[in-house]
Simulated scan of single mutants.
Amino acid sequence: MTTGTTRDTESLPGKATRTVGSGPSQAVDPAGAADPADLAGATAPIEAFQPVKSAGRTLDVLEALADSPRRRSLVELARDLGIPKSSLHGLLRTMIQRGWVEADVTGTRFGLGVRALQVGAAYLEADDATGLLSGVLDELASRFGETVHLGRLDGPHVVYLAKRESVHPLRLYSAIGRHLPAHATALGKVLLAERPDEAVDRLLSWPLPALTRHTVTDPELLHAELATIRARGYAVDREENTEGIVCFAMAVPLHSPAVDAISLSVPAARLGAESEERIVAALRAAVGQVRAARSLLAGA
């Protein structure tokens, strides 16, 4: 691997640093006592915080690898992330040593390592909502034999936290951890509808991408649909995320506004005349169970 002969350097402060609370690093003297003038800055507004460049670059690399369906080369990552190859080479070697990144047999293409899987699994194991809703997902999947998801709003996207597979060969492809535009999914739309239009406009990234020819991307049409969702209590994605798949979703009342939702996805070819009524009734019953068990969630 060619890394070049130049090396990026970042200026280092003359004093050692440590972190006080959640604010920026504070200067300390050799004995470890914090400078009072620096401590005063610990309560400064969050806007004054300056991210650590090396930490930001490391996270950029991990997020780029997570978003890619294939391994990435050093040249691709350096170009897409704007990181000099010499600096990126050092970051990748460090992350490979720690298990966060893996290289292929040629040592030239990189993907996420097993450590990333371990941390992701730990997140799900520690998440109260995932555990609380496990039985609800099982019940819906058993009753309908279709794909069931638990999703969480993450900025302008929705991410799958849990799923139950359909028993049919023809089914929706999905994976835990996958991010999708919130406006193009039933899960995302029902969670957007929990928020006022002004908050939705700030949350989404305009212009909205179209995943299929059915995706709603016009702001006025989307706001009108969100109003309908608020009135009826559930959202429908009619082939807006994937051609041939219809999805129904309802928000889970664990927080206000809700951040989690459950959904059931059905191929349009299997959607009968009374299917929507049955699915919505089942989702309402499931949400009712969660509302009754809400006290079990820590901090609810």
Rank of each mutant, 00 (worst) to 15 (best):
G151F: 07
H157I: 01
T108I: 06
V159E: 08
S134W: 00
F110H: 11
L137P: 00
G145F: 04
E139D: 12
R109C: 02
L150K: 12
S142H: 13
F144W: 14
H149R: 15
D138I: 09
G151L: 13
E125Q: 07
D138Y: 09
R152Q: 11
T130A: 06
T108V: 11
L124W: 02
D127S: 10
E125N: 04
V136F: 01
E125F: 05
A116N: 07
L137K: 02
H157P: 02
T147F: 03
E139R: 12
T147L: 15
R143K: 14
P156S: 07
G113P: 14
G113N: 13
E125K: 09
V114E: 14
G151D: 15
S142Q: 15
S134P: 00
L112M: 11
L124E: 05
E139W: 04
T147D: 05
L117R: 06
R115D: 06
A129M: 02
G107Q: 08
H149V: 07
V148E: 12
V159I: 15
G111M: 07
G135C: 06
D128P: 07
A141F: 02
P156T: 09
G145L: 01
Y123R: 15
A121S: 06
G135N: 12
V159N: 03
G107V: 12
D128E: 07
R109P: 01
D138M: 08
R143G: 04
V159S: 05
A122C: 07
L112K: 11
Q118E: 14
A129H: 01
G113W: 07
L124S: 05
L153K: 08
G131A: 02
E139L: 06
G113Y: 10
L132V: 02
V148I: 11
H149W: 13
L117K: 06
E125W: 06
L133P: 00
L133E: 00
L137R: 01
S142G: 12
A126K: 05
